[in-house]
């Protein structure tokens, strides 16, 4: 990839999928290597003079031909309303992949809300090993993004918590409530958290309150 002086390189959108209202997956050809769990900066501009790129976790596997990015449109944000107007064939700009929110390939808990599921999807698609427990929180039943990928995976226990709608085999309530009711959380496994800051901070407090050493908690924040 040829990154310009602001660290941005152009990529052409090859697929645009609206998976639920105002939530999109954009795909473009992979021309770089990355580790599952890493992020890339995204912008609709080729410079950082006015606006800084926003960071997004890569949602696809590290050997996939296409790179997938999952985002929801935040009407008050500067980027996503503009990004959502882009179509297949349009150019957007990305930074090189970076970040250390990486799978340990051991038994671990993955905890995500909303689009915070993206790095875990990347880890799974990249061949993550070790027994995982994925706890996924969403408000609506149609917001368990990538759920088909997580169902029926041998080494993955997939728990969905829906706070506003009831569904079959789905915990009805907030993810944080589920965790509060969860007895005997192991203290010797890593807990990977990804989502909005409020969720990350609240879940971390619950885990610490349940005796999980803070050193076992790895948090990825959205900003």
């Amino acid at each position: 990839m040829d990154y310009n002086i602001d660290g941005l390189a152009p990529v052409v959108i090859t697929n645009k999928i609206e998976i639920t209202e105002r939530v999109f997956i954009y795909q473009f050809k992979r021309a770089f290597n990355f580790e599952a769990g890493q992020v890339i900066g995204i912008s609709v501009f080729d410079n950082t003079d006015e606006k800084m790129p926003r960071m997004y976790s890569i949602a696809s596997g590290n050997n996939d031909e296409l790179v997938s990015i999952l985002f929801n449109v935040k009407e008050t944000g500067w980027l996503t309303p503009l990004l959502a107007k882009k179509e297949v064939g349009d150019t957007i700009y990305i930074t090189a992949p970076s970040g250390n929110f990486l799978d340990n390939n051991e038994s671990a808990f993955w905890i995500a809300t909303g689009t915070g599921i993206a790095p875990f999807h990347s880890m799974l698609q990249s061949g993550s090993s070790g027994q995982k427990t994925l706890i996924h929180g969403a408000r609506k039943l149609d917001s368990f993004y990538f759920e088909d990928s997580f169902l029926n995976v041998n080494h993955l226990s997939y728990i969905r918590c829906c706070s506003q709608e009831e569904g079959n085999s789905i915990y009805f309530g907030r993810l944080t409530q589920y965790l509060k009711e969860y007895n005997n959380l192991p203290h010797d496994q890593k807990y990977y958290l990804c989502g909005v800051p409020e969720m990350v901070v609240e879940v971390r407090d619950i885990l610490i309150d349940k005796g999980v050493p803070y050193q076992q908690i790895v948090a990825e924040i959205y900003f």
């Binding site: 800051p197 901070v201 971390r204 803070y214 948090a219 924040i221």
Partner: peptide, 17 residues
């Protein structure tokens, strides 16, 4: 107002963003 960074030692982090 608030903060997104989630530092373990900070009170502002606890109010979210």
């Amino acid at each position: 107002i608030g903060c997104k960074m989630g530092c373990l030692f900070c009170m502002t982090a606890k109010q979210g963003f």
